[in-house]
Amino acid sequence: MAKKIAIVTGSRRGIGLGIAKELARNGYTVVISATADEVQASPLMDSLHADGLSTEYIRCDVSNKQDRDNLFSLVMEKYERIDVLVNNAGVAPLKREDILMASEEDFDRSININLKATYFMCQKAANLMIKAMQSGLEDYHPRIINIGSISAYTSSPERSSYCISKAGVSMVTQLFADRLAEYNIPVFEVRPGIILTDMTSVVKGKYEKLIAEGITPIRRFGMPEDVAKCVMAACSGMLDFATGQVINADGGFHIRRL
């Protein structure tokens, strides 16, 4: 049986790395990708290989078309298949700034990396997946999973560009789930809540207080592993008929409560 191949963008640390590890532990060869060069990524890769995980590193700035094309070309040249694409790469605002003062630079950066890149990564992967399916590739059931955020529907006026970009990711998921249904390629959104990562470390105290006060029914920080398990559920095949579904990895934050 051919080895299954997964690509996880933005996977050098945080949620992305948690997802990459979980996929590798479940038998995938995982292409880890981020903007760091190979030398910077080598300590991580050595550690993963020492743990017996089948991974390789390909540098990719997802906001750059040439980098995206190079990533897919290298993967297809070596493996001739992509079984799972996880669009995880994303950035927080450069500066938390009131929406009345937010800059075009920050807006463009969030949209280009979080939204535009996700759209075109889905497009490129989808076409390669369709082609592979039509070639008669055996045991091939590809899936696309986009990592969204509770910020898609939760107003944070000091992080407006991030919220808008993640709301867009939700629609990207719906659009591709609709379009790819005829090819039996399911597309999902995994929507993390308050996850303990480098991105949230700068406001850890604020979130600790909110969690203690019950902003989430499960009163703890989420961990990258919590998100990774939801990704694995989407990869399992058990949810394929639920294409387009949002899987909330948020400790119950989405529940409306009185």
Results as ranks from 00 to 15, higher is better:
1 M>N: 12
3 K>L: 10
4 K>L: 02
6 A>R: 09
7 I>F: 13
9 T>F: 13
10 G>W: 09
13 R>F: 08
21 K>A: 05
23 L>E: 08
26 N>A: 02
26 N>K: 10
30 V>P: 03
35 T>Y: 10
37 D>R: 02
38 E>F: 00
42 S>P: 01
43 P>N: 05
45 M>C: 02
47 S>I: 00
47 S>G: 07
48 L>M: 11
54 S>Q: 14
55 T>S: 02
57 Y>F: 15
59 R>L: 03
60 C>K: 10
61 D>M: 07
62 V>Y: 11
67 D>W: 13
74 L>W: 01
76 M>Y: 05
77 E>G: 15
89 A>S: 07
94 L>M: 11
98 D>S: 14
101 M>A: 09
102 A>T: 12
102 A>M: 09
103 S>T: 15
105 E>C: 05
109 R>W: 07
110 S>M: 05
114 N>C: 05
115 L>I: 01
117 A>E: 04
117 A>D: 05
126 A>I: 06
126 A>Q: 10
127 N>R: 14
132 A>Y: 05
139 D>C: 02
140 Y>N: 07
141 H>I: 02
142 P>G: 10
142 P>N: 04
149 S>G: 09
149 S>L: 06
158 E>P: 03
160 S>H: 04
164 I>K: 00
164 I>R: 03
168 G>K: 03
175 L>M: 14
175 L>N: 12
175 L>W: 13
175 L>A: 12
175 L>I: 13
177 A>W: 13
177 A>F: 12
179 R>L: 13
179 R>S: 11
180 L>I: 07
183 Y>S: 15
187 V>N: 14
190 V>H: 13
192 P>R: 14
193 G>R: 11
208 E>D: 15
208 E>S: 14
213 E>M: 07
214 G>T: 10
214 G>C: 09
215 I>E: 03
218 I>N: 07
219 R>T: 06
223 M>H: 10
224 P>R: 08
224 P>V: 03
226 D>K: 01
228 A>L: 05
231 V>Q: 11
233 A>P: 02
240 D>Y: 14
242 A>V: 00
247 I>F: 15
250 D>T: 04
252 G>P: 06
252 G>L: 03
254 H>S: 10
256 R>V: 15
